[in-house]
Design a protein around this nucleic acid. Structure first.
Lengths: 343, 343
DNA sequence: TTGAAAGCGCTAACAC
DNA sequence: GTGTTAGCGCTTTCAA
């Protein structure tokens, strides 16, 4: 009957050692798959662990210099399905690697908050960090780099080549969607950007512009509004676009959530989707099939991005001296019901 | 220049002690707001911590018998906005209490997985647990109770009076929505349940039935379909309801996500919302205003539920011998565009 | 009020 | 192949 500290009926490595009639170091070896243990001892220890219902105390393990088996996930918020999808991918990988996840949201703190998190995180709580679409990341990326703390950026390609990042072919995605609209006969295509401090936002805009150029259309600055990835902004920008003297016949929003705002605005003006205005989004979050009409959008393989980033992080934790990897997963235009050929 | 172990440039309590010319025990006292420290010593220590950029190592702290300052959040998945809203509330409270959060999802494991989490969680990693809408919870609630490990259930009122839980007035919500539909003139009102192993699902159904009875309408079992809180099931159930010989003029789904599935099904049959079929959901997740027409729904104060549960958990951690609290926050019918009076 | 010392559960040399 | 011994950074008696 092992004595417990607080709540936990904690069976420790020492109890197991006692039960298996070995030293606690040997138990540790077995637990860490050290090869220098005789098969029969290993067997005996393993039996003892199950008999006693032992489970390792991660805090102690990581204090002693081992891994914490925890990674930190830093996100703005969990608002939309966007993060949910990414987490699905992360989660899968983590569970097979026997890792747990700490969740850090930054939505309330505004600037500065993130860096507080990150430094305290790097304090040993976690073995590595996954940063989803970080806002003004330079403030703390610096710190992480200095400490050689493993991290991978998701959907944001950092400032240089020096960091590992997984993203999608944002430029191509922007290009494809715009080209598609052009081929449907649209000539005046409104564009709503994401937060312009993010590389992915700039890339999508670039793709839009490139497609326009390649098809001999000029770039009208009036058709480009600066958004922020949130629905209200999609609404506002769309309102502005729709009240232009020469109203666009199609609007391409830099993410699905803003596209929902566009839908609202279009209806607000008693216009029909897609008859009067075609709408395209970006991301393909689960909600894009819940709305009506179902949204034509550029799919990002979000779950896969999460999974890939996690694999990369795990490798980085294993071997921190690895060179940075930069992965771009392909986007795909998903045509649904919010777009149609111009009359 | 403190020496670091792994990545962290870790300034420890010893470094601070040295700098402040006191023992590390005194530093610990200051850090833990122990009253037996002279104001001037405290001041000196505090200055040293900031000068050195010290930040406490939670692992060590919790190993030594203190709090881990981490709570665990156990959810099925992050799929919809539902969890996102709850987390917003949790997060707020946690940040003011200086707590961090571990996220445990159970979506992949199916049965049994949750209990594995929970036991390993209770192993000292976290100070307490928040369980959102847990599936078949009896398997591990038992364990938690035995160990007297603090936990609070969210949106699920446990098996007895013995556990702390925060939910909403589900029965009343079900009643209100149904009553509203009846007052609009609807007589045949379809109902899609949630997972019936959950108390909240049963309560919503009860409210539906009670409203019917109170208004002299009989309960037609054919109008009640068993759902599971997911969109595809909403679609399927709605299809069944709509192909009934005497088709319902309104459908009340036990959550918003299923209501979206209902919308799909209604359109699939070339019927109009709300002209041919009125639709009501439950939850009021953010998406319910993104869909068209905007969804009439029973609002649960999700963020508030998260916040309240967190406060309760924190109190429970402070004083585990407290009696269990059971809180029901009020729901509110939010009338939007998916419902109308019958012709 | 403060310091010394023990120990939380574990890993990682270092012996044997 | 296995045991012994030191810590990891902290909290917490127990003395002083």
């Amino acid at each position: 009957m092992p004595r417990g500290t607080r709540f936990t009926g904690s069976v420790t490595i020492v109890d197991v050692a006692h039960e298996a009639r070995v030293s606690h170091a040997t138990v540790s070896r077995v637990l860490n798959n050290d090869s220098h243990v005789s098969p029969e001892t290993r067997e005996r220890v393993l039996r003892a662990t199950t008999r006693l219902g032992y489970s390792v105390n991660q805090q102690a393990r990581s204090l002693a210099g081992g891994r914490s088996q925890v990674i930190g996930l830093v996100v703005r918020d969990l608002g939309t399905g966007y993060i949910g999808e990414i987490v699905r991918g992360i989660d899968d990988q983590l569970s097979t690697a026997q890792y747990d996840m700490m969740l850090y949201t930054t939505h309330r703190g505004g600037t500065g908050k993130e860096s507080v998190y990150v430094t305290s995180l790097a304090q040993g709580m976690t073995d590595g960090l996954l940063l989803v679409l970080p806002q003004n990341p330079e403030s703390y990326l610096q710190t992480l780099r200095q400490r050689r703390f493993p991290f991978v950026l998701i959907d944001h390609n950092g400032s240089g080549e020096s960091e590992s990042a997984v993203g999608a072919t944002n430029r191509q995605g922007g290009y494809d969607a715009t080209k598609y609209l052009i081929e449907l006969g649209h000539r005046r295509i409104g564009f709503i950007t994401g937060s312009m401090d993010l590389g992915c936002s700039r890339d999508r805009l670039d793709g839009y512009k490139a497609a326009l150029c390649d098809h001999g259309l000029s770039i009208d600055q009036a058709l480009i509004r600066q958004g922020d990835f949130h629905q209200p902004m999609g609404f506002t920008c769309a309102q502005a676009l729709l009240s232009l003297p020469d109203r666009p016949t199609a609007i391409f929003a830099s993410n699905d959530v803003m596209a929902f705002g566009v839908m609202e605005a279009v209806r607000d003006q008693a216009l029909k989707i897609p008859d009067d205005v075609s709408i395209v989004g970006f991301d393909d979050i689960p909600q894009s099939v819940s709305v009506y009409p179902q949204l034509t959008t550029v799919q990002q393989p979000l779950a896969e991005m999460g999974a890939r980033a996690t694999q990369m992080l795990l490798e980085l934790i294993e071997n921190p001296d690895q060179p940075a990897q930069r992965v771009e997963l392909p986007t795909e235009l998903i045509v649904r019901a919010s777009t149609r050929a111009i009359k």
